[in-house]
Design a binder for these strands. Structure first.
Lengths: 340, 340
DNA sequence: CGACGTGACGTTACCGGGAACATAGCGCAC
DNA sequence: GTGCGCTATGTTCCCGGTAACGTCACGTCG
């Protein structure tokens, strides 16, 4: 069953001699070069099949000076959103014949250190770089480290130096705020992520801009740290906060912490306050109450990231950025305000 | 600041000529060979530093026939537990000078296809393999695919063919059940993961064995699919189930679904039923009620995995398996049964 | 005092591919 | 029929490391 040649691993030359051709002919067949006679191609492919031959990626990388590897830096630890993006990128990269090396922030430390991450990635050889969930400071540092390396940053604003792709964060925030406004809410506060994170900032801006456009009062944003704990802290301080009837939280975890904090304070959701999250975690539809939130299509995002990078690697400099529309998922945590 | 040599990337030879030695001397310095004069070493290292030289891992891999890469197969998509393990393995591997290539199941398909995953990993060159969250069937397939490749499976039982490392799943289950027994529960049901998954089976067995040891009635286990949805389904069918006062769920997601289903059925947790989960997701402490669960130290697990694999790669065949003790985290979702 | 071991290097070949440059056969225009 | 260009294939060298072996100076010992 399993191709059990007990000899050394086959290489181009062994294939070649068995097929009665030169190793270059085998190489050309494998690389889909034109100008190969169909019979020759078949003969070669038959031997390749028989020996279960796989190209040596190290040798290929060495000869071509291309690793077919995409480096990925993820600045936020395990917390779902960026994680899903990473998975989607890995998947899309594999489909495209690339492999991925990633450096993710560990839950312990306070984020990826861009210099070390880059040094690790370049040491292992990468052709392109993708940065997920970046902080503004990381982007600044990377600007001087990625000289000549095709680099895509998952962020919403276009960038002269980098390719960009992302789910449209501002649109997501707009959807959330509009939904609350449609329900009749006029005092809508925002529990933001750390504003050094580009995603956090984009969500905050979307919220801010949409309130402004509607002529509503814009309260100061509360800044959390993405964690459910920080949402909890916000919520239990309810009595000391200026009045509001709805909250747009920058992610589902903080939204969950808010639900928890409100329960501990005896505030009911959605009767007293409506809550909207962001991300649509797989568990969010089972929170109590189930959470209205903004869903991002990570799979599409991953595909997009790899498409843009591969195009850039192949010399296509036309497409430089693209955005994916998010979707509002309405559940139990939002309702009309009582005062109406 | 950034080593701005505008020339081609430096290589061993360029370092060598600048340092006035042969390229082999540079290689030896970099590989910590003995028999290098301290002055020579310093001279070389100075140039290496100056040019910001990094070894070409492809060339190294080609010459040594070692990629210093650990392949990882993850059989369960993004759902936290296995994910955290993967992150921890990546982190530990990086610390140990290895890099990781991973294949994770995408949320769409119903699990990793071991043959394809292996083919991808070997094509990109790996020295060792780690399998996270495996199904029994995957393990069987891998048995014939990993011929000669040092392989570690993250599972609790020792294995003649493989290295093993894991958090002690049976102990975790025992802790959960014992906690419920300590509270006075006598009818403790289990909502298991799919029993084809080794982790699910180990948790089920731990639960079963501990009930048996205590001489308690052993109801049939309900089998979910790890998702919160499946927990919900179980819970809303409450009326049709034989009576019980406590549930041990095989993961936190299903536990959350159960909390949700019970709320929809008007059953109170923990007043009517106690619920224990498994994993301690970062959000579990904010569920309503906050969830009693079993915490796994993924970081320690990742370190252990890499230690065992690296030892095996270096020819040390003494340590073949190891287990980490989990910890019970008691929160609001468990209490004494009312009947007591 | 010469054979020999050893430390500190240098030389050469090789890992498994691919680029660049031959080369051989063949159809075709003049 | 001869020169030309194209197609299909072969040769050679190189990518950037490391292994294996060679060399040379120096110290030691019989």
């Amino acid at each position: 069953m399993s191709a059990g040649n007990s000899e050394d691993k086959p290489n181009l030359r062994s294939i070649a001699s068995l097929a009665g051709v030169s190793h270059m002919t085998v190489s050309r067949v494998l690389n889909d070069h034109p100008n190969i006679r169909p019979e020759t191609r078949e003969k070669v492919l038959r031997v390749v099949e028989e020996l279960n031959y796989q190209r040596n990626s190290a040798a290929r990388a060495l000869a071509t000076r291309k690793s077919r590897r995409i480096g990925v830096i993820v600045d936020r630890p395990v917390e779902i959103g960026p994680d899903s993006t990473l998975r989607a990128v890995e998947h899309a990269a594999r489909e495209a014949g690339y492999s991925v090396s990633s450096v993710a922030a560990s839950p312990d430390d306070d984020g990826v250190r861009p210099r070390e991450a880059m040094s690790y990635l370049t040491a292992h050889g990468i052709d392109a770089l993708c940065v997920i969930a970046p902080r503004a400071s990381s982007v600044d540092v990377l600007r001087e480290l990625t000289d000549g390396l095709p680099t895509l940053i998952v962020k919403a604003d276009d960038d002269a130096n980098f390719l960009t792709a992302s789910v449209d964060q501002r649109l997501g925030a707009t959807l959330a705020v509009q939904h609350l406004m449609d329900l009749g809410h006029r005092e809508i506060v925002h529990v933001a992520g750390p504003l050094d994170w580009l995603d956090a900032r984009a969500r905050e801006r979307g919220w801010h801009a949409h309130l402004k456009k509607a002529g509503l009062h814009i309260p100061p944003a509360f800044v959390g740290d993405w964690s459910a704990d920080s949402g909890y802290e916000f919520a239990v301080a309810f009595d000391e906060l200026p009045p509001f009837t709805a909250i747009f939280a920058a992610n589902d975890q903080m939204a969950l912490g808010i639900l928890h904090g409100f329960r501990d304070r005896g505030i009911r959701v959605p009767e007293d306050v409506s809550v909207v999250g962001f991300d649509d975690l797989s568990v969010s539809r089972h929170f109590l109450p189930t959470l209205t939130t903004v869903r991002q299509d990570f799979h599409a995002l991953g595909t997009l990231v790899v498409e843009l990078l591969v195009a850039a690697l192949e010399g296509d400099r036309s497409e430089r950025s693209s955005r994916i529309a998010p979707e509002l998922i309405v559940r139990e945590s939002t309702a009309r305000p009582r005062s109406m």
